[in-house]
Design a protein around this nucleic acid. Structure first.
Lengths: 350, 350
DNA sequence: ATGAAAGCGCTAACAG
DNA sequence: CTGTTAGCGCTTTCAT
């Protein structure tokens, strides 16, 4: 029964015109307090909801935010997107937006989906995840002045980003992990990460490197960084073999990893490693698998990140021109961004 | 540039009327082959996409499927919804539908969201997950003749379901797990599940029980079922303590669990248990945590399940009346359903 | 097989 | 502050 109630029904029941009802909803300040209250009451009583399609036709705004959902690699870190999505949906609802899902095999296919979506459902904005160097998606959207926010820094254009973004400070996370190990007395702390070139991976490695280097300059040179570093593809197996190799050649007493997948593998290697003291391991992402394995891990505030994304978008959508002038000569057109600090979830492994 | 192209632009560019373009898209059989081809070509060239809002206003169909996304308990099995969602989004796109997300704290709140959504975005259908006994959501939707499909059996009304559903045969999964253990020579196989009353849990327990009982009647009574059964809340810790208890009092050589969370806990207990042969453990859901822990687990075909949901919905939406006659006296109004068999992913733990 | 007219529900402009 | 008019882009009659 909730449907079929139109603005005309409300107007009739309240004894006012349709526009007064519309104004009550869209420009409350224009309606007399008393009338407003009365209309609101009738709306409530009839269970009226503005038809979104009709509203969209008139205003051109769909109040839809689109985001891609992918299968997520080995699944270990898949739950990261899951939590982010939940937060996004929840915050978006508060701001009057809904989340629309789509899939795409790669960036090119994603752009094709943009075209499709923009012609049909016309989402007001996109949320980009897994941004990387020379991301064609951001340039495509930027060229067309389409509103979007990236969850992930615009790695190729820092620090003068030309679009709003939200990210978690990976370096600060691995720094916290490294400091935690230092505080526990460790001095030889290895790092297992991904090959150079991925923004996320480089960032996470940097946090370890800088902390470790700082220690070196304090104590007078602790740091043969390269010997304690391994760069491999993500995965449990590669994490295990990298850890084995590291333990054999560099004798670290602790390992910081760029992901939980790597850390889980490293943990296996650590457990089968003989030594007076167990080798400590710290992962990244605080996935369910980390919980299950008792793995200390860097935790990303995903609900907050999602909320920040919605916030930035809502703001940009209220001020359409802020974003639609990519080449405004006079203004630096610096875009808002949010960099959130992660926290360390401490468990048995470190 | 993909937007702002209307059906009028296409008509003009193709030298036909707007209706011919519309017909080409919606009733191709009505248009002359040659004209149809020409129009299609122009559509392609201009990158035209039918404005969904306008279409919805006219037809009343949004081509939107709504589904709830929740934070997912301890997160271990959260990835199940994740994979299902991905499959749903992908299949839905093939059929011309998009997936709209929403959250809700509980069933009552979810119904409130139905009302909101039905009045605003007007999704064509809902996909229900985590169905349970006396689910107020199904009755609410049923009463109003709203199209939906449940991922999960209508536990309170089997076998004459009054709505379409898709599910994975949990009992067959635990049966396969139990048979696998029997084949490996195990004879005392315990089960750690949830307290009676949850459809899913009862189903999974039944698969173990019936297989084990069948063995008993063959060999002449192997089965003191109750001694080998523990029912606890889901979670790693409760799984571990239940397993410890079971190992101490009933001396099983293998354990089948109703979830990966329970199994992960059981695995810990099993590893610290002394015996000539390691205690085998099998979980359920084949989550990333199971991969990481080398846990053998029952794998649900989630992409297939999602595809089946979309299929059932698409069919129901083409035949609106099939669903809208909950009380049709003459017809049993039996609804279509799909029960998919899971598979066993074998790893080190069993 | 194709063209003309109407209207889905809403809100942005105005007029009162 | 409230009411009237118009039209967003599409599909569904109904004529031709």
């Amino acid at each position: 029964m909730a449907d079929k109630v139109t603005i005309t029904d409300v107007a009739r029941a309240a004894g006012v015109s349709r526009q007064t009802v519309s104004n009550t909803l869209n420009s409350p300040e224009v309606v007399r307090e008393e009338t407003r209250r009365h209309v609101l009451e009738v709306i409530e009583r009839l269970g009226y909801r503005a038809n979104q399609a009709a509203r969209q036709m008139r205003t051109g705004r769909s109040r839809l935010i689109a985001i891609r959902i992918d299968p997520g690699g080995d699944g270990i870190s898949g739950s990261v997107l899951d939590r982010f999505l939940h937060g996004l949906t929840e915050t978006a609802a508060h701001e009057g937006y809904r989340v629309l899902l789509y899939t795409a095999a790669d960036d090119r296919a994603e752009i094709a989906t943009y075209e499709d979506l923009l012609g049909s459902y016309k989402p007001d904005a996109f949320v980009l995840t897994a941004t990387h160097h020379d991301d064609i998606r951001t340039s495509w959207l930027l060229e067309r002045g389409l509103p979007f926010v990236a969850f992930g820094r615009p790695w190729s254009h820092l620090p003068d980003a030309r679009h709003p973004w939200v990210d978690v400070d990976g370096a600060s996370g691995t720094e916290a992990a490294t400091r935690h190990l230092l505080a526990a007395g460790h001095r030889r702390i290895g790092f297992i990460g991904w090959p150079s070139g991925s923004g996320v991976g480089d960032d996470r490695r940097a946090g370890w490197a800088r902390t470790f280097t700082a220690l070196g300059s304090e104590t007078g040179g602790a740091g043969d960084l390269d010997a304690l570093l391994r760069s491999v593809e993500d995965g449990i197996e590669s994490g295990e073999s990298a850890a084995r190799d590291l333990l054999r050649t560099a004798a670290p007493t602790a390992l910081v990893c760029a992901s939980d997948s790597l850390a889980l593998g490293a943990l296996q290697a650590a457990r089968s490693h003989e030594g007076e003291r167990p080798v400590a391991v710290i992962g990244f992402d605080d996935t369910p698998a980390a919980t299950a394995a008792g793995l200390t891990s860097v935790h990303q505030p995903l609900a907050e990140a999602a909320a920040a994304c919605v916030d930035l978008l809502a703001r940009a959508l209220e001020n359409p021109d802020a974003m639609r002038s990519p080449d405004a000569e006079g203004s630096p057109s610096e875009q808002a961004h949010v960099l959130l600090p992660p926290s360390l979830t401490i468990r048995q492994s470190a």
